Structures are given as C-alpha cells and as structure tokens.
Amino acid sequence: MTTILLRRTFLSAMTVLCAGAFLAGLSSPVAAAECKNRGDLDIRYCDENGDLVADTPTDPAEWLDPSTLVFSYTPVEDPSVYENVFTEFMDYLAKKTGKRVSWYGAESYAAQVEAMRSGRLHVAGISTGPTVYGVNLAGYVPFTIMGEKGNVFGYKLQLITKADSDIKTVADMKGRKIAHVTPTSNSGNQAPRAFFKEMGVTPDVDYEVIYSGKHDNSVMGVVNGDYDAAPIASSVMDRMIMKGMLKREDIRVIWESQYFPTTSYGYVYNLKPDLAAKIVDAFLSFDWAGTALANEFKPRDRFIPITFKEHWAPIRLIQKDNGVVYSQEALEALKK
C-alpha cells in the first residue's frame, strides 16, 4: 500500500499543542486504585508485569486502532530532511500494517511527548534522554534501536571545543560559556551534569549554561566560536562530519564517556495488540539495503530488539542522580 503523507497540512495542525487536550483523560481515582504497580509511570498508566513500561489496557474498548498511523523522528536536525530519509520505511510500515502512514516533523521533544500522550502520535523514534519521559508521561513503549550486524549501536557523550581553544580539561570550562542541548537531553545535559559534578565542575555554578536546542547547533556553535565548549552526542557529530558540515580537525574532544544507547523506536501503549505486533514486525523485518535510511545512518544496517528495563538502566540512573521527577513540570522543562 502506498503511504499517504499529509505533510505540510498535517505538520501545521500538529504544531498547535493544546494543553487542555494533553491533560484530559487522566485516570480516575478508581482506576488508579486498581493498579498494583506503577513505579515512575503517570497515574493513567499501570505496570503489573514489572517491565517499567505501561501495560496494554485489558479492556478492548480502550484500544486505539487508527486508520492512519502517525510517525515521528526525534527533532535532532531538519525535520524535512528526515522525512525523506524515513519514506521507504514508512511505505514498508504501511504495507505491513495495512494502514496509511503520515509523517509528523516534531520541533521539540515536548511536542513528541505531548502528541503521543494525547493520542495523536502512534509510532516514534525518541532520543535517549527523552525516551524516559515518553515512557513515564506518554505511555511510550520502546522496543528497538538501530544496530550494526546484530549488535546494539551506541554513542558517547563527548565534550568538544574548538581545535585552537585553550580549554584542555573539564576544569578549564570554569568561567566559560558552554552550550548544553536541552534540559532533557541525555548527552547534551543530563549526563554532563552528573559526570562533570563528580569531576569538580558544576554546570550553572562553575560555568554559564546556554541551551542551543539541538546537538548540531551546539557543534556548529563551537566551530563558529559562539560557545567555548559543548557536550554533544558523538553519533550526531559523526553524521555532520560525513555530510561535510565540518571537518574533524575543526574540533578537539576534551573528554568522553562510555557508550549510551541511541534513539529508541516504539509505539504508544494502547494500540490494538495485533496492530502493535505488526509494527514490531515491520521494524525488525525491514531490509535496509540500498535505502536512504542505510545511507544516512551507516554503519548501522538494521533495527535490533531492546528492552527499556535493561538498555535504559544507565540513563534512568543519571536522571535519578539529577533529581528528575516525571511530572507536568518535567514536561514543561522539555520545552525550554
């Protein structure tokens, strides 16, 4: 089935986020009392099986079976570029599910989470840090990640500066202007706050934090001298170098972390079970060979199964260390 992409019209409609719609439909006290285990999940969700993600509703009347599946990719770079990158996959997703598939070019992490929580976004790729917010605030169920030859692909948090900068160590950032990405970005904010503090440098205290909004903004801001340094995701910078947006010799890596998982892919918890199963099958059976997806994300060449409980454990620990509470206030922080 050919995918019907309601591009500009749909994007305009999705850009208008209604706070009332977002907050509507909270679980009643009766429903909340019936849930024996919830963990960090919002009150409208339940986790009886202990896998840390929202359970599929037991009442078929609560299942979602849309005629058009809405798909979104994390707002890291130009959304219009990634619409083209994912077109072949969206066509395949339409074929496997028997549904039309429409693209939503989210402008922020908050937009993705709010759209999924309100039932307007059904399938998504959500960045590392915001994945935890999506799980707990929007009923997001991540189940796969991009990999290479059967191995889970990761990225490192890298602290970068301009090649000729006098910043040589983490301590040298004191008194400088440092670009962080967004408050909920793992490599662009959450992990640096946890790691740098352990190394004797506290963001917002020892240096000025300036939120750039996106990893590529941080990278180019360092190259152009707008920021003295920036913590970024190595995978984003690697893609930018491959595209010729900068040369590796333009920057210097001061410090880097262990590997973290990259963008997760998943669906909203209340999809009709057989539809959710078809979506999982579409991701795991998609042939990357010769596709724009393979070209954009090489050397990754397939989607590989993951679990939120196992693979996002270090990310949850970082957010816990930073005192993150998954609430309406936390969602508002996604917009800053």
Score class of each variant (00 low, 15 high):
N84G: 07
S28V: 10
V152S: 05
V209C: 03
P299D: 08
K99M: 10
L317E: 15
M245C: 01
I210Y: 08
K156I: 03
Y104I: 14
E48T: 09
F86T: 06
L293V: 15
Y133M: 04
L293D: 10
T291Q: 10
T182A: 10
V76R: 09
F286T: 05
V113Y: 00
I251D: 06
L5Y: 15
G213K: 08
Y227G: 05
R300W: 00
K247Y: 00
T131Y: 03
K149R: 12
D55K: 08
A33H: 04
F260L: 13
Y211N: 06
K95Y: 05
S27M: 04
G323N: 04
V81I: 09
Y92T: 12
L52V: 11
P60F: 15
K36N: 13
P75A: 15
P314R: 11
P314S: 12
R300D: 00
S118P: 02
I232T: 14
N270A: 14
L41H: 11
K174N: 03
Y155A: 15
A313Y: 02
A171W: 01
N217V: 01
D228H: 11
N186A: 03
K149Q: 09
L137G: 07
Q190P: 02
L293E: 08
Q112R: 03
G125T: 11
G125D: 07
D287M: 01
A19N: 13
N186H: 10
K149N: 14
F283M: 04
E332V: 11
Y155M: 15
E34Y: 05
D250L: 12
P130M: 13
V53F: 10
P203M: 13
V253F: 06
D164Y: 04
R300C: 00
V268Q: 15
N189W: 02
G213V: 09
P29H: 14
Y267R: 07
A194C: 07
E208W: 01
E107F: 06
I241D: 05
W63K: 11
M90I: 04
A313R: 13
M242E: 09
R120I: 00
M240T: 01
D301L: 00
E296L: 01
G25L: 11
Q190H: 01
V219S: 06
L331G: 02
